[in-house]
Structures are given as structure tokens and as C-alpha cells.
């Protein structure tokens, strides 16, 4: 863990094809036995907002430095925003939080 907070989004074949079409396939990393993941950056402030909006989620501070147990639909929405913005940076989470606050997710 290098201090950067992340959200892992698992990439299956269908999602990998969408990433390839968006020119983002290079952002998918091999993680485990053929499973790929794209890692979306989260700022400290964004982490606190996400944990407050989705109380079932947990921040794994000791091992992976990732936010886990986010609902599936949240992860789906974040993945779609990655495609839309062609990014896996904090701007994706900024846009997601805005949508949550506007009641669009």
C-alpha cells in the first residue's frame, strides 16, 4: 500500500471489450489468475464522503488501502464513468459524488 486510496473494479471479458473500445485497456491490470482489475483513485476527502453515503462500505487501511463492500450498482456506475471520462483518476469519483448528491444514482 503506497498511501493512495483506491477502488478496485473487476474486469471481465465484457468490460474489457468496452475498455478496449474506449482506448482504456491499458488501465486493466492482471490481479489474480487471469482476473483483471482497474483501480480508480480516491482522495481522502472523497473516501470519507463515500463511507458516509454508503455505510456498509469499509476502508481496508491495513492491507490493500482500498474501499471495499460498495454496492454492485455503485461499482457499475463508477465503471461507466471511467469509460465516459476515459479516466481512472479522482475526477471520476468527483463526478460520481456529484451524481449521488443530485440524486441521480
Amino acid at each position: 500500500m503506497n498511501g493512495q486510496i483506491m477502488i478496485n473494479i473487476w474486469i471481465n471479458e465484457e468490460r474489457f471489450e468496452k475498455m478496449r473500445e474506449a482506448g482504456l485497456s491499458g488501465m486493466a491490470q492482471d490481479m489474480l489468475a487471469g482476473m483483471k482489475v482497474t483501480r480508480v483513485k480516491v482522495s481522502e476527502k472523497q473516501k470519507d464522503i463515500l463511507l458516509s453515503e454508503f455505510p456498509m462500505a469499509k476502508f481496508d487501511s491495513s492491507t490493500t488501502g482500498t474501499i471495499e463492500l460498495l454496492p454492485r450498482k455503485v461499482k457499475d456506475e463508477i465503471f461507466n464513468l471511467c469509460l465516459e471520462k476515459k479516466s481512472t483518476g479522482e475526477d471520476v469519483i468527483e463526478a460520481f459524488i456529484l451524481r449521488v448528491r443530485n440524486g441521480r444514482t
Partner: peptide, 10 residues
């Protein structure tokens, strides 16, 4: 944690 996250994401 990784396995958990795969299953939650479906």
C-alpha cells in the same frame, strides 16, 4: 478481500 470484492461485483 479480493474474492469478496469479486462476488459483490457479481
Amino acid at each position: 478481500t479480493l474474492l469478496r470484492s469479486m462476488l459483490i461485483d457479481g
